[in-house]
Simulated scan of single mutants.
Amino acid sequence: MKRPIYFCKSWFRAKKKPTEVWTEEQAKLAHMKKQSYTVLVDSIERPYCFMEIADKVVGVGFLDEHLRESLSYDFQEIEPGKLFLTMAIHREFDGETDIVVSGISYIFKQDGTVHMRREFFNPHRFETAATSSDVSMNYAATPDFGEYDDFIRVERS
């Protein structure tokens, strides 16, 4: 079953709501012109995730029950029609607040190199590591309008 999708100009992270809800026609026009627009998955008020789509990049923000961006993925075009997941960030929050207590970022290279940086904010410190991984699931085709299922998967492997 296809998940319901909605469109807007952008997702206002601080206010946890969309800016300018758009019609499908407005979003389709932006897509055709390679201009940025945002897709909301499942709901306008309480989306499962949002996708920021622009020319040559796609960003996905997965929201928790408090509409905080707990996980984000950044895809960049590596060749026409082909995107690669270059970065993923996971954030942990202080209880039900919007205060980030720690986060870990993963930077993926096409050769399989993965750089990790875990940051703690109180007290501030960070740890870094590097490893290699199978990044074959990090590739995705540039999405056709309305075809976003490949990007809204949390599990990439």
Rank of each mutant, 00 (worst) to 15 (best):
K109G: 03
K28A: 11
D149R: 08
A14N: 05
H66F: 11
S72E: 15
T97F: 11
R125F: 13
I44T: 09
F145M: 08
L40E: 01
H90C: 03
P143C: 07
H90A: 10
E147N: 14
G61S: 15
P4G: 04
K28R: 15
I89Q: 15
G59L: 06
P4M: 12
F108G: 05
T113C: 07
A129S: 15
E24M: 02
T19C: 05
K82V: 14
F7L: 04
D55H: 05
K15S: 06
E52I: 08
E127G: 01
A130I: 15
P123I: 02
V60G: 05
M116W: 05
E127Y: 08
K28C: 12
T23R: 06
M137I: 01
K82Y: 06
P18Q: 12
N122Y: 13
K17F: 00
E79T: 07
I78L: 10
R153Q: 12
S136Y: 04
M51L: 15
V39P: 00
Y73G: 03
F12M: 06
C8T: 05
K17T: 03
V100N: 03
E24L: 05
T97R: 14
S10N: 10
E45T: 11
R117G: 01
E69A: 09
K28D: 00
Y106W: 10
T142Y: 13
Y106T: 00
S72C: 10
I53D: 02
S10I: 10
S10R: 08
R118N: 04
Y37G: 01
E147F: 02
Y73V: 10
V39W: 05
E96M: 11
D144T: 09
H115D: 10
D74I: 09
V135D: 04
S43E: 14
Q35P: 00
H124A: 13
A141F: 09
H124W: 06
I53R: 07
F126E: 07
L83Q: 04
L85M: 11
F151Y: 15
V21L: 13
L71A: 01
N122A: 13
L71F: 11
D149I: 03
Y48K: 15
A88K: 10
Y37Q: 06
E25S: 12
L83W: 07
D150P: 01
T19W: 01
D150E: 14
V21T: 10
C49R: 12
S72P: 08
I53C: 06
D98M: 08
H115Q: 10
S43P: 00
R13D: 07
D42W: 03
E52A: 12
D149C: 03
V41D: 06
Y6Q: 06
H115E: 08
C49D: 13
F151S: 09
G81S: 07
K17Y: 00
G112H: 09
I99W: 01
L29T: 08
T142S: 14
K56S: 14
A14M: 04
D144R: 13
F62V: 13
R156M: 15
H90G: 04
S43G: 04
E92D: 14
I5S: 07
